Amino acid sequence: MSHILITGANGFVGRTLSRVLLDAGHTVSGVVRRAGQLDPRVNEWLEPSTDFAAFEAQWPAGLAADCVVHLAARVHVMQEDSTDPDAAFRSTNVEGTLRVARAAWKHGVRRFVFVSSIKAVAEADRGRPLSEDNAPAPEDPYGRSKLAAEQALLRYAQETGMDVVIVRPPLVYGPEVRANFLQLMHGLWRRMPLPLGAVRGRRSLVYVENLADALMHCSTDPRAAGQCLHVADTDAPTVAELCRALGRHLHRPARLVTVPESVLRLAGRLTGRSAQIDRLVGALQVDTTRIRTVLGWTPPYSTDEGLAATARWYRAMKEDSQC
């Protein structure tokens, strides 16, 4: 069994990954900025410095990890307040990531699993599922920072011999999900009419339990060495199909209005939300052939099972709030 160190261990993915690893018999240490939020079986490392500035100096005595899974990152900001978003994302997602990798290498860690994003490659698939061989063309500060971090880590791996594994998930969902996916469930719960009935583009997703399982394999399987791997559920639903499935599991049938995609895109241009509408309407399928071939990995849960679990969590949350 392995000792895995997780940064961002108290986050949405980090908590699930910690449990999956522990249940499989691995030892887990978790790096967090706030104490007291981890599974009691996790060895907690409180490291509140900005962008991991003190990471190497604060490395706990006696901590000997086999692998670091780097989840901590500056993620999408709903209302960006930085005057230079690219610099803000780069500070955390590139410089901070390199600080973690350098400290890990100096303390004997030989594998570094970097959780990147499919946004490091593209925002749309242009008619063909995105594979690891696609030329990257990120379109926003977050995607650009993730790609820059990948490239910096690969250079560091060449210099040192560190085993870097890059994992690119699409949108992650599951219990405790936040951001746009949660907003969608709010709309379905309130029975709001949604103008998504005509959206045909398919978009890959990954259930958090499936991602955690894939990350465990990437952390411990020798065959993952040096790989860049795309991870996603088997299914890639349209937005309309996603709404119908979620509505069914929420016991709130989706009220979908058929609005032509051209009208949605026009509305996006008129309201200054073209990027958001393009992501909603456009197709973004992910090719997972490599991880299936190299590691023999398949998602342990179907998309419908993942959506059902997410809906159960949401319904329980709503029921608790009414007590």
Rank of each mutant, 00 (worst) to 15 (best):
Val286Ala: 02
Val286Lys: 08
Val286Thr: 05
Val286Pro: 01
Val286Asp: 04
Val286Gln: 02
Val286Cys: 04
Val286Tyr: 03
Val286Ile: 15
Asp287Trp: 01
Asp287Val: 09
Asp287Ala: 09
Asp287Gln: 04
Thr288Ile: 15
Thr288Tyr: 05
Thr288Gln: 03
Thr288Arg: 11
Thr288Phe: 08
Thr289Ser: 13
Thr289Pro: 02
Thr289Gln: 14
Thr289His: 14
Arg290Phe: 09
Arg290Ala: 14
Arg290Thr: 13
Arg290Gln: 07
Ile291Gly: 07
Ile291Ala: 08
Ile291Gln: 04
Ile291Glu: 02
Arg292Ala: 15
Arg292Ser: 15
Arg292Gly: 15
Arg292Cys: 13
Thr293Cys: 04
Thr293Gly: 05
Thr293His: 10
Thr293Pro: 01
Val294His: 04
Val294Gly: 02
Val294Leu: 13
Val294Arg: 09
Leu295Cys: 09
Leu295Arg: 08
Leu295Met: 06
Gly296Ser: 11
Gly296Gln: 06
Gly296Arg: 07
Gly296Cys: 12
Gly296Val: 14
Trp297Thr: 06
Trp297Met: 10
Thr298Tyr: 09
Thr298Leu: 14
Thr298Ser: 14
Thr298Trp: 10
Thr298Glu: 13
Pro299Cys: 11
Pro299Arg: 13
Pro299Thr: 11
Pro299Gln: 12
Pro300Cys: 12
Tyr301Ala: 05
Tyr301Asn: 06
Tyr301Ile: 02
Tyr301Ser: 01
Tyr301Gln: 11
Tyr301Lys: 12
Tyr301Pro: 02
Ser302Asp: 08
Ser302Thr: 15
Thr303Lys: 02
Thr303Val: 09
Thr303Met: 14
Thr303Pro: 03
Thr303Leu: 15
Thr303Ala: 15
Thr303Asp: 04
Asp304Gly: 12
Asp304Cys: 08
Asp304Ala: 15
Asp304Val: 12
Glu305Asn: 02
Glu305Arg: 02
Glu305Gln: 15
Glu305Val: 00
Glu305Ile: 00
Gly306Trp: 07
Gly306Glu: 02
Gly306Asn: 11
Gly306Pro: 08
Leu307Asp: 08
Leu307Cys: 09
Leu307Gln: 10
Leu307His: 04
Ala308Lys: 13
Ala308Glu: 13
Ala308Asn: 10
Ala308Gly: 06
Ala308Asp: 11
Ala308Gln: 12
Ala309Gln: 05
Ala309Glu: 01
Thr310Arg: 04
Thr310Tyr: 01
Thr310Phe: 04
Thr310Val: 06
Ala311Asn: 09
Ala311Glu: 05
Ala311Trp: 02
Ala311Met: 10
Ala311Ile: 03
Arg312His: 11
Arg312Gly: 04
Trp313Met: 00
Trp313Ile: 00
Trp313Asn: 00
Trp313Glu: 00
Trp313Ala: 00
Trp313Pro: 00
Tyr314Phe: 15
Tyr314Asn: 03
Tyr314Lys: 00
Tyr314Trp: 15
Tyr314Gly: 01
Arg315His: 07
Arg315Ala: 07
Arg315Ile: 14
Ala316Phe: 02
Ala316Asp: 12
Ala316Lys: 10
